[in-house]
C-alpha cells in the first residue's frame, strides 16, 4: 500500500490555487481568441481582447485575473489502495487554501456563516468532493469558483416527457437570464439525471472538462451543440454588450435517474474559469 503525507496535499492545493487564479488555461485562451476573430461587433471584439490582455497582465504581475478569487471546490479522486497519513483530507485541503490566499494576495471571499456573513479571513473552508477509485493514486481537480456566475446557476425537476427539448429550453432560459451578471462569455455546465444532489455535482464536474471538448455520448454532444448555438444566437455577447459570443462551451453530463424524474442542474462559469488539476 502506498502512503502519502497530507502535507503534500496542502502544498499541492496551495500551488493549484495560485496557478488557477493567475494563469488562464490554454483551452480558454484558444476559445477566447477564436471567438474574438469571429466577432463582427467592434465592442464585443474589444471586450474579448481586454479579457485576453487581462490574462497576460495577471500572469506577468502574479495577480489574480479577477478580484473575486472564488470559493475553492476540490474534486479528489482517492485511490482505494492509498493510505493518507497526517490530517484529514478536508484539513489538508484547507491548509493549502489558507496558505495560498493569505500569502498570495488573493481575496478572502468566504463567509464562515451564511447568515451572519462574517468573513472566515483565509478563504476556508473549501468544498471537497472525494470519491474512491481503483489504484493507489490521488487526483486533485480544483476550481476557484466566482460568486457572480455561481449566483446565476439553477436547478429544476422536469418531467420525463419534457425530455431533451425541455432540458435545452431550461438551460437556455437560465443562461439568458444570467446574461451580463455571469460575466459572459460563459462556460455552461449541465447535469442531466441522477438524484437531486447528484445532478448539481454533475453540472459542477462537467466544468472540469477541457473547454469545448464534446461529450462522448452522441445525443449529449448534440444537445451541447444545440444549446451553444441558441445561446450564441441570443445576441447577449461578451459582458452583455452585444455580440455572437455569449458562451464558449456547453458541457452536458448524463446520469441514470428514477423513472419518474428528469432533474436538470445548470452551473454557470464565467470567462475567468479558474481550474487546475494534478495527479499525485
Amino acid at each position: 500500500m502506498r502512503t502519502l503525507h497530507t502535507d503534500r496535499i496542502s502544498e499541492t492545493v496551495a500551488e493549484l490555487c495560485l496557478q488557477a487564479n493567475r494563469s488562464l488555461n490554454p483551452d480558454m485562451r484558444q476559445a477566447l481568441r477564436a471567438a474574438g476573430d469571429a466577432e463582427r461587433s467592434p465592442l464585443a471584439a474589444r471586450t474579448l481582447d481586454r479579457i485576453l490582455e487581462n490574462a497576460d497582465v495577471a500572469e506577468r504581475a502574479s495577480l489574480p485575473m479577477c478580484q473575486d478569487t472564488g470559493l475553492v471546490v476540490v474534486f479528489a479522486e482517492v485511490g482505494q489502495s492509498l493510505l493518507l497519513e497526517g490530517t484529514s483530507l478536508q484539513e489538508a485541503v484547507d491548509g493549502g487554501v489558507r496558505a495560498a490566499y493569505t500569502s498570495g494576495h488573493l481575496r478572502a471571499s468566504v463567509s464562515a456563516d451564511p447568515l451572519d456573513r462574517g468573513n472566515s479571513g483565509d478563504n476556508t473552508p473549501a468544498v471537497v468532493h472525494a470519491s474512491v477509485v481503483p489504484g493507489d493514486g490521488l487526483r486533485l481537480r480544483l476550481l476557484a469558483k466566482g460568486g457572480g456566475c455561481e449566483n446565476m446557476s439553477d436547478f429544476r425537476m422536469l418531467t420525463p416527457f419534457q425530455g431533451t427539448q425541455g432540458v435545452a429550453d431550461f438551460v437556455v432560459e437560465t443562461a439568458e437570464r444570467a446574461g451580463p451578471n455571469a460575466c459572459p462569455p460563459m462556460v455552461v455546465g449541465v447535469g442531466v439525471g441522477g438524484s437531486f444532489e447528484q445532478s448539481a455535482l454533475l453540472a459542477k464536474r462537467s466544468l472540469l472538462r477541457e473547454v469545448g471538448a464534446a461529450s462522448a455520448v452522441a445525443h449529449a454532444a448534440e444537445l451541447e451543440r444545440d444549446i451553444l448555438d441558441r445561446l450564441n444566437a441570443s445576441g447577449i455577447g461578451p459582458q452583455g454588450y452585444g455580440g455572437a459570443t455569449t458562451a464558449l462551451a456547453v458541457h452536458v453530463e448524463l446520469a441514470a435517474c428514477h423513472v419518474a424524474s428528469l432533474p436538470v442542474s445548470v452551473n454557470i462559469e464565467c470567462h475567468a474559469h479558474r481550474h487546475k488539476e494534478v495527479a499525485l
Binding site: 497582465v57 479577477c66 473575486d68
Partner: peptide
Amino acid sequence: FGAVGGTGALLAQ
C-alpha cells in the same frame, strides 16, 4: 457605467 467583469488585473493598472 459598466467595466469588464473579470478583468481586475488589467483595471488595477
